[in-house]
Design a protein around this nucleic acid. Sequence first.
DNA 1: AATAATATGCAATTCGGTTGCATATATTAC
DNA 2: GTAATATATGCAACCGAATTGCATATTATT
Lengths: 138, 138
Amino acid sequence: MEVSELKAIIKSHGLRVTDCRTDVMGHFIKNKGALSQSDLEKRLEKYDRVTLYRTLHSFLDSGIIHKIPNDTGIATYGLCHNTCSPEKHFHDHIHFKCNSCGTIECLDDKKVPNITVPLGYKMEHVNLIVDGICASCA
Amino acid sequence: MEVSELKAIIKSHGLRVTDCRTDVMGHFIKNKGALSQSDLEKRLEKYDRVTLYRTLHSFLDSGIIHKIPNDTGIATYGLCHNTCSPEKHFHDHIHFKCNSCGTIECLDDKKVPNITVPLGYKMEHVNLIVDGICASCA
DNA sequence: AATAATATGCAATTCGGTTGCATATATTAC
DNA sequence: GTAATATATGCAACCGAATTGCATATTATT
């Protein structure tokens, strides 16, 4: 993807275009898996970790990325589909965590089946995380 | 549940019976929701943080409790069904996180539907987390 | 009751996440 | 293009959860 396209995506979400945001965006685009803050810190050492932290949060708030729940305690993020907006997120795909390499990816083709919750409960989001061994580690 | 029963459960998982483990076990039994370490620290101030930490890990290792993935970064744990063993866990129920009170509970009656993963992937566990508003907060 | 194995408490460290503030940079208006 | 203004960045510093080493206390066994 061209850098100009990256910048267009950032701008289209109402954010200012900066070097850090462009670089982080580029990493999300070209990385098949989800990224954690420490992943980004290793790949983009030129930026302060607080800047990366705030970049992730501005992306989160504007609906560019979504947070993927996992049991490691380390927040990981994946690109949202273009159907996402700051107000409403649609993440009906399955997340896969490899127990060998630790990589977390979005299985965009695998949709989450319909779920119901008990009477009196109001469902807002559904997150389906499968763990196991990914194709690269098998 | 009787204290003697609590102790029997602990012993049946190959763990020594101690005051802390019995108390923690008791809290898991009587608490409908999942518990985090800080939850336990507040309820069981007589024990050191580290002791509670290690109690949770011995329970995890022996298959008494399971870790529930969530996006808060705070590890929460729920009781396993009696079908769980140290080697193999079966958590085919849905977890619900309330966005109002923060409580996480196991919806034991709600089973996770069948899922498939892409070719080359090996599935080990499925975790389904629904968030929204629980019956108490609605 | 003695022994051996294990759990506990305490001190201390690591690490991810977070905030305040001064400075640098992006956008807007001219 | 330049000036003005709003916003992003880097640095220092703090917080809380997670983690480890070690001496002491407790459990289970004989």
